[in-house]
Design a binder for these strands. Sequence first.
DNA 1: ATTCCATATTCAAACGTTTGAATCTCTTGA
DNA 2: TCAAGAGATTCAAACGTTTGAATATGGAAT
Lengths: 370, 370
Amino acid sequence: MQRKPGHVTLLDIARACGYSVSTVSIVLSEAPLSRNVAASTRDQIRSMARQLGYHPDAYARSLRSRRNQTIAVLAYDLSDPFCLPIVHGIQAGLQPQSYLPLLVDAQTQRKLFDSYLKMILERRAEGAIVIASWIFEETNLLEDIEKNQVPIVIVGRDLTEKRVSSLLVDNEAGGALAFRHLADLGHRRIAIIRGPEELFDTEPRWAGAQRAAAEAGIAIDSRLVFQLPNLTDPTSGFDGGLHFAREMLASGRSFTAVLAFDDLTALGVVRGLSEAGLRIPEDCSVVGFDDVLPAAVATPGITTIRQPLKEMGLLSAEWTLQALNSRDQQRDKSVHLYKAPPELVVRNSTAKPASRRKARREKSRLIVSS
Amino acid sequence: MQRKPGHVTLLDIARACGYSVSTVSIVLSEAPLSRNVAASTRDQIRSMARQLGYHPDAYARSLRSRRNQTIAVLAYDLSDPFCLPIVHGIQAGLQPQSYLPLLVDAQTQRKLFDSYLKMILERRAEGAIVIASWIFEETNLLEDIEKNQVPIVIVGRDLTEKRVSSLLVDNEAGGALAFRHLADLGHRRIAIIRGPEELFDTEPRWAGAQRAAAEAGIAIDSRLVFQLPNLTDPTSGFDGGLHFAREMLASGRSFTAVLAFDDLTALGVVRGLSEAGLRIPEDCSVVGFDDVLPAAVATPGITTIRQPLKEMGLLSAEWTLQALNSRDQQRDKSVHLYKAPPELVVRNSTAKPASRRKARREKSRLIVSS
DNA sequence: ATTCCATATTCAAACGTTTGAATCTCTTGA
DNA sequence: TCAAGAGATTCAAACGTTTGAATATGGAAT
């Protein structure tokens, strides 16, 4: 196994300028000792390194130094528009400490998830940030990662009872915010599409909506409550919304607004209602959740509950680095929880309901025609 | 620097079951020599490894073996919906050979791009796939990566004249396809929004549209041709589309269809026309390019030109692995080019133009009211 | 008995770094 | 003249693995 020709090591540089490997290493890695290396030597070594095209070998380096400036970021599915802003936040948080994210995308597949998990362990990432999925039981994840003393933070789910620092949006508040927005506009007959049963966001959002309904003195008609099936594909919310919109119309029950579980679902609802000739928001208001790109660029723009995803990502990065540092100093194993405040983003998919009489007339016409 | 407690090495296993490190390594790495290790020994070692929670150290391993089963994937901006399907394709192509993608997102920032590039070199990725950006001059990228003998493939741009294997959609054919679709529907007065000047896709798409116009005997009104400004943010196409839609209407020139540079631009156009009270597609057809998620879930769904992104990603992965293998065998430095065939996806943003008289009447009413 | 082969296992060097300790060469102060 | 320190550089071991070569063990064939 002869050395590759194009491959420059410390030894090459050392020989080229007549110093030892140690000196070269000290200079190029800017170790504390480099303070008392002669300035001329430093310059000579640096310029030789540049000239030969030297790049330190991360493998050799971190084999020796046990550090690799890497935080693993394990996303359950990058194609969910939800993930990207979080990743950007993480990158922003890691950058200043010159840590690098090792980004892996499990594509909602258990098999991939496991193999990437193994990879994270093998690459000795110093910490891990998991962007949560409802699909996997993270139990063995915890065992395996924690056993190896890697600090871990989870985004999008509360796992504090398993002693994992967690960040997520305050879903209860968000659900309430969305419902209250519709109530404030004057809507009384509000259809609700709940999330999939296995998704942890579902319950608190529903609870928030119920609380807001009670506060506004509005009764939720259980026949106007739907629940998305368990999904594999993050865009399948769209199909669910489309499906339930048709079902709502076919049921003949009147409603003037729909509270959808997330933005894709809301977009599906818009599609379904539009197909039947309803205009959004004149004939029916629709509100989503998350504030992902498709909601912003659709026409009408979807009124939604924004999650401060980027901020959450940023914070998760900071927590991880913090845990790293405190681990080096003492054993500070405190577990944090941050429930981010959701924010109402009003666009054009919501409006005051049409006057009751007119609305009823239109509706009946439509139901007949569908 | 004492060893971390939770950290299990070959030596630990060797001691625990009374064999040498070599034997343990041979067994666990399934080296050829493991053929003649006693079956009982094998089992004992394997179960001990599992019991202790052993994970091989990728750093030590690849320091010695010079392989790390990693292909770097450098995306210019993951938040462009364009990138994700490519990444998925790459993952799919790497998986069967148990190579792992090292995914990095330059977020359209030169500084990040450089620092990630350095990282790729330091981590000794065996190959690199670049999802192209118009922002960066890839010249030094080439120098730096090629000097280190790392095979490199670029997706989304033709760099064959710099001897880099390239995959991209056939933009010329796509532009023609889009224009011909509108012409076939009967449109004659077609507005065109060209891409930013610095983007390499712009020219061929425009050329394709011109060719199709000539073939259909349609004259393109230069006053209905617009050009997006150079952009930093991939979603800024939306703003551009919105802006030009308003400008088109204000100009008073009549048109029945808009050919937008990409899907986000098309969505911006839809927004702009809708604001003025126009209905899509009854009053005006709009066609996009790329087929990204927001185009599919908007209402009406945007008719667009689909790029086979996933297939392109898959192929890029295969090329890279192939280059890796052939490099080990002989010096096969052949450069490939693949122009993927685009595909028309008809949704609901395009339709036959309204009869001429009626269209003109509507238009003039609108222009007055705006 | 000796030689030879196959099977099972170990030796020891190497990969490219980092780093605590060691060495060497000057100054400086007494 | 010597000790003490500071400044500049090097030694050598270590990180955890892989791997070509070497060794040990037991037959079987000569």
